[in-house]
Computed example of a mutant assay.
Amino acid sequence: MSTSIIELKNLWVSYPLGKKSRISDLFKKRKEKKEFWALKNLNFDVKKGEVLGVIGRNGSGKSTLLKILSGLILPDKGEYIVRGKRPVLLSLGAGFDGELSGIENIYLNSLLLGHKKEEVDAKLNDIIEFSELGDFVYEPVRTYSSGMRSRLAFSIAISLDPDILLIDEVLGVGDQAFREKSEKAILEKIKQDKTVIIVTHSASLVNKICDRVVWIHLGEQKAVGLTAEVVPKYNAFMNGRAKK
């Protein structure tokens, strides 16, 4: 696990603050632009074949980091380098079209993830079987529950065998049996030397399967290191805040 396949160097991401200007404001002196920095000066890498956990409380910047890692947004400052295919994000089906059927969304989502139609054709039965949707796979996705959408999204990404798997904590949605099945599938990918990045606030999950951890708080990188070193610091910090 010596080769870095992902690198973040002095990475900053901002969002604009305030309401949109009125037409009359166009004739006034332009005010200074206000920004909220969601991520500030992140510096870490991801090694080939490792399981990296990204932890932090709600509002720490994990969702923004997900968007960076999956290529949905670009940083304002700094660099984000991926050597090879970009990570595949497992979430509640970003990119799904509610008016299309599950089958049609399998092809749509797979193409958005960079796969060819021939690859999807070969894996279609595996995707449908893993999702456990049955005949619902022929119905519009707008009729699905959040758990059904999650199962379909997970089944697409896991069946198409990505090099880098990016897992959002939102995958906890769904019944216990499917969660256990999903965890088993992820562990199988780990055994195959796939690179896995798990974004979560669950220290117990990170302790269970992660080699290293990045801890983010209020957009800033508080620690990067081995799980056994970082998680106790994170737990102590969170317990201290809870007592206040």
Rank of each mutant, 00 (worst) to 15 (best):
residue 212 R to Y: 01
residue 78 G to T: 01
residue 130 F to Y: 04
residue 77 K to T: 08
residue 82 V to W: 06
residue 164 I to K: 00
residue 45 D to H: 08
residue 67 K to F: 03
residue 15 Y to K: 09
residue 28 K to T: 11
residue 242 A to T: 10
residue 85 K to F: 11
residue 63 S to Y: 13
residue 206 V to M: 05
residue 169 E to Y: 08
residue 185 A to Y: 02
residue 87 P to H: 06
residue 151 R to T: 04
residue 76 D to V: 12
residue 108 L to F: 07
residue 117 K to S: 12
residue 110 S to Q: 04
residue 106 I to M: 00
residue 134 G to N: 11
residue 186 I to V: 15
residue 200 T to R: 09
residue 112 L to E: 13
residue 223 A to I: 02
residue 17 L to M: 13
residue 12 W to M: 04
residue 209 I to E: 08
residue 231 V to W: 01
residue 216 I to D: 13
residue 65 L to A: 07
residue 226 L to T: 08
residue 141 V to I: 10
residue 88 V to K: 09
residue 12 W to P: 03
residue 181 K to R: 11
residue 158 I to P: 04
residue 215 W to D: 11
residue 24 S to K: 13
residue 137 V to E: 00
residue 9 K to W: 06
residue 81 I to T: 14
residue 27 F to N: 12
residue 101 S to P: 07
residue 103 I to V: 10
residue 231 V to C: 03
residue 99 E to H: 10
residue 160 L to P: 05
residue 184 K to D: 08
residue 198 I to M: 06
residue 9 K to Q: 10
residue 243 K to W: 06
residue 145 S to W: 02
residue 141 V to D: 00
residue 97 D to E: 15
residue 9 K to G: 05
residue 7 E to A: 08
residue 46 V to L: 04
residue 68 I to F: 03
residue 175 D to L: 05
residue 207 N to P: 06
residue 8 L to C: 09
residue 111 L to G: 06
